[in-house]
């Protein structure tokens, strides 16, 4: 069982191309792991706060990830909702990369 605040391995760092996102599930929870154009990794809650649509299927543009269904947008660095119909912020999670392996703190 995972303890709160534990680092969990996600993938190798070459598994996500720049400006792409990946779905990562752990237990009952699901996350969107995003790699910026510059190559940095970020993690937020996987499902849009508007309806249960997974953000990893949406496009990444600049600091924004966009819901593939209704175009709500979030700043993936902070989880902040940026455009309607999304109006509730998402949680962001810490990420670290160690020896080309990406970890999320959940």
């Amino acid at each position: 069982m995972t303890k709160i605040g534990e680092w969990v391995e996600v993938c190798t760092s070459d598994a996500i191309a720049p400006e792409e996102a990946m779905r990562f599930s752990h237990g009952e929870r699901s996350f969107a792991i995003i790699r910026s154009l510059e190559g940095n990794f970020f993690a937020i809650d996987g499902h849009c706060s508007h309806e249960k649509v997974h953000l990893a299927d949406g496009i990444v543009d600049g600091n924004i990830i966009e819901c593939p269904k209704h175009f709500g947008t979030f700043d993936y660095r902070t989880g902040e909702a940026r455009a309607l119909p999304a109006c509730v912020d998402l949680r962001r999670y810490e990420i670290k990369v160690d020896s080309n392996v990406v970890f999320i703190k959940i």
């Binding site: 649509v53 997974h54 990893a56 299927d57 949406g58 496009i59 966009e66 593939p68 269904k69």
Partner: peptide, 11 residues
């Protein structure tokens, strides 16, 4: 599926 088509339609 949403995952299959949505990014390409958006582009």
């Amino acid at each position: 599926s949403l995952a299959t088509i949505s990014k390409d339609i958006r582009i």
